[in-house]
Design a protein around this nucleic acid. Structure first.
Lengths: 115, 115
DNA sequence: TCCTTACGCAACCCGTTGGTTGCATATCAG
DNA sequence: CTGATATGCAACCAACGGGTTGCGTAAGGA
């Protein structure tokens, strides 16, 4: 699960697809929603209220962390996770760009039809 | 691959997660980019230039169609696929809402610290 | 110190996915 | 009509993903 290297190139290129697929899971989407709405939370806290095992939640958090949507701050014996908004803004911009392209296409077609 | 029912509830609720995961694949992301930037294209057209088999591309297009990001218009012996912008706007709004929540959190924390 | 809590690691299970190939069918061109 | 083109369908396969369980260990509290 890529728990390996310290991610040397800290400002490495992040693929949009990986961020999308990180959000493409109901559980992770719920986790993001919780973390974006509240303060940093420990794994145990995030597991409570879920019917899933702690390990399952932990794996999801790692996926979110690998996607850069979240970061962890170890504190004593617990590990608190906090939301990281940068990739979200990036996605927002990407989606804006895509729909803008589509608007241009529509405009071209309209101009073509109206001759 | 859910090629079954005529999707009775045509305006059915679509989960964000499914749209995200539809975009969470490099190939599908590329297809969306092409379709959002140009006119509707047939499967053969979309397959040309790719090293993948036609069937692979076809399956990806069906996934995109199930997610509502694309729709197909059969025309003669070919099947043209066109971009569908609605879900993209929906995602945009969702991301905006999430980051807005986070901004509120930051504001609360700031107020708390500055007492 | 002793017990409990919060983790990380590893192995394992099984359904889903991404991809391929082969074949049948409908449409278009000559 | 005949051949080529554009698809759809089905079977099959390897790899990945989401989940679970068991175990070892570090940090806190009584």
């Amino acid at each position: 699960m890529s728990r390996a290297g310290p991610d040397t190139g800290s400002a490495r290129r992040r693929h949009h697809a990986s961020i999308f697929s990180a959000l493409g899971d109901e559980t992770r989407l719920a986790l993001i929603t919780v973390l974006a709405a509240g303060e940093p939370r420990s794994i145990a806290q995030l597991t409570g209220g879920s019917r899933m095992s702690r390990q399952a939640i932990t794996k999801h958090l790692w996926v979110l962390e690998d996607a850069g949507l979240v970061h962890s701050e170890p504190s004593g014996r617990e590990n608190r996770f906090a939301f990281d908004p940068a990739p979200v803004h990036e996605l927002q911009e990407y989606l804006t760009r895509v729909s803008a392209q589509w608007d241009q296409v529509l405009a071209r077609l309209k101009a073509l039809v109206e001759g």
